[in-house]
Lab assay of single mutants.
Amino acid sequence: MQRVNMIMAESPGLITICLLGYLLSAECTVFLDHENANKILNRPKRYNSGKLEEFVQGNLERECMEEKCSFEEAREVFENTERTTEFWKQYVDGDQCESNPCLNGGSCKDDINSYECWCPFGFEGKNCELDVTCNIKNGRCEQFCKNSADNKVVCSCTEGYRLAENQKSCEPAVPFPCGRVSVSQTSKLTRAETVFPDVDYVNSTEAETILDNITQSTQSFNDFTRVVGGEDAKPGQFPWQVVLNGKVDAFCGGSIVNEKWIVTAAHCVETGVKITVVAGEHNIEETEHTEQKRNVIRIIPHHNYNAAINKYNHDIALLELDEPLVLNSYVTPICIADKEYTNIFLKFGSGYVSGWGRVFHKGRSALVLQYLRVPLVDRATCLRSTKFTIYNNMFCAGFHEGGRDSCQGDSGGPHVTEVEGTSFLTGIISWGEECAMKGKYGIYTKVSRYVNWIKEKTKLT
């Protein structure tokens, strides 16, 4: 034993070699072989497995989906700052455009905790909710729209109204504003409101030439003092309507412009014939205590009207009353817009006519005020429907199939267009061939041609 100890002390290297040989010859039971080890760690190889990531292109799944990435790591994937920024906006807080917040056709661009709407022409605001041009839906104005110097929408209202708090709607500024039905039992019968379409306001006024200088022999019209197929109006439903009495009662109609003036057809009036105007009328054979009678003290036909040349060209006249009318729910003026808007309103496509005229061709006159909704007829169809001249200051309205029309005794009465609950004068009943005849239409004086003249002559002093 002493000898062994001496050998170990003198030859430590020998001992180490012996131990190493023993270990190498022993069977290893701690580690699995290569094949079995792979069965336990069965993990798919990654895209760049075996390579240094710093030297390969980034992978979106590896960089940002398996674990949260930084902007720089995302930049490695896209290799483009702009594309990385677009991805980053949604990656950080989701897609803010998912709810489609942009209105009126706006395009949404996502941002971090926010979004941006790219608005089409005519709109602005956070969600493109603000109209900035009158060309689109009248700028959301209830009545009139004008573009300011910086191309912003400025709404306005006709006389007797003021802008509401929203700067879009119009509200009454006087007790009985024009064009409004205020009798409670008839307010439910107000005709369907007309909503502004998209309009090209630059070209809204037709490029028409008034044929002022045409000389033409007097034409022989049949029954051209021209509501057939209409309905009984309720008291106060058309408070701007008046009836004219002269040699015979209810020979023509008219509309209240203001307390002192009536507008009617020029062919209705004769110099030297006494005319009485009755406002607030409903049943011409009954006294309903809503009527107001006034005498006409002055007749002003349009300066281009000449019955000797043509009885229905420039067929418009103004009547001055001896005493002002007292405005109330049964006696209310009709609204008159400017030339541009009167023309736009007419193009809405349908209007209402009213009167006490004959209820059928050569038949009896109506006792109760009649009204009828009539569609506008395109000019080409209008011209083809008659052998008589249709001037540019006239328009056609009615039904091709016949059966409904204005008729004798309705002449001078109103053709009105309702705009968001307020009625505007767009025409004056003038003439036609018979009444409600198939293929024939009622012919009306186009008020847009005469609004400046009306307003100039009827100013209240």
Rank of each mutant, 00 (worst) to 15 (best):
Y444R: 01
P333N: 04
C69I: 03
D33W: 07
I454H: 01
Q408R: 10
A380F: 12
Q216V: 13
I316V: 08
G230L: 12
V248T: 15
T386Q: 10
R373Y: 06
D322S: 06
P120M: 05
G246T: 08
K387R: 12
T445A: 04
I262Y: 00
N245I: 13
F87V: 09
K247A: 13
K459W: 05
C102T: 00
Q216Y: 11
E286K: 11
C102E: 00
G58R: 09
F399C: 06
L52Q: 15
I316Q: 00
C145Q: 03
V451N: 03
L325G: 00
V263W: 02
M6S: 11
E72L: 10
C102M: 00
F221A: 12
L319C: 07
D232W: 10
G236V: 06
P101C: 00
C157K: 00
P375R: 12
Y312S: 04
L130D: 11
A266M: 04
R226C: 06
P239K: 00
T215L: 08
N222I: 10
G398A: 05
A164I: 04
G355I: 04
D110V: 05
G349A: 06
G355R: 14
I136T: 05
K347W: 04
N258C: 02
G427V: 00
V359K: 14
H400G: 14
F176Y: 13
T264K: 00
D33I: 07
Q96T: 06
D410K: 15
I454R: 00
E288R: 06
N135D: 14
E420R: 15
C252M: 01
C155G: 00
M8K: 14
L244R: 01
N222E: 10
H400N: 10
R404I: 13
C69A: 04
G106K: 00
A436R: 12
L189S: 13
A266K: 02
L20W: 10
T417D: 02
T16N: 04
E433I: 05
G413H: 11
G254Q: 00
P239R: 00
L20D: 02
T287F: 07
S169R: 11
Y330C: 03
T276Q: 09
T218V: 10
L346D: 02
A207E: 11
R373M: 08
L376A: 04
L244W: 02
K260N: 07
N38A: 11
V269C: 10
Y161R: 04
K188S: 14
E401N: 09
F144S: 01
S217T: 12
C141N: 01
A250T: 09
P197N: 05
D405P: 13
F238S: 03
E142I: 04
R43T: 13
K146N: 08
N147K: 15
A337Q: 01
P172F: 05
T389P: 15
K45Y: 04
Q370A: 03
E165K: 12
K51E: 13
V263F: 01
H361T: 14
L372A: 13
Q90E: 08
C407P: 04
E76I: 15
K293M: 05
V77Q: 15
T29Q: 08
V92W: 08
L244D: 00
W88R: 15
L318W: 00
V4E: 08
R226K: 09
T16C: 09
V154P: 04
I428H: 03
G230A: 15
N113H: 11
T16P: 06
E98D: 09
S49V: 12
L321W: 00
T287G: 10
K234W: 11
N38C: 03
F196A: 15
L189T: 07
P375D: 12
N222F: 11
N36E: 11
A207Y: 13
R180D: 02
F31H: 06
S350N: 15
K387L: 05
D95C: 03
L32A: 15
S329A: 10
G106Q: 00
H415V: 03
E270Y: 06
R358G: 12
Q90T: 08
K440T: 13
R75T: 14
K68Y: 09
G179H: 00
E82M: 08
N80Y: 05
V4C: 12
V273E: 14
L319K: 00
P177K: 00
I443A: 05
L319V: 06
C268I: 00
K311R: 13
T422L: 04
R379K: 13
V326L: 10
V199R: 11
T85Y: 06
S187V: 11
G355H: 13
L376P: 04
K347R: 13
K39W: 05
V199T: 12
F78C: 04
C145R: 02
C178H: 01
K234I: 14
V4R: 14
A207K: 13
R162V: 11
L24Q: 03
K455E: 04
E208S: 15
T287H: 06
E171I: 12
E401V: 07
S156T: 12
V278Y: 05
G402T: 08
A279W: 00
G398P: 03
K459R: 06
S204D: 10
L327K: 03
D110C: 03
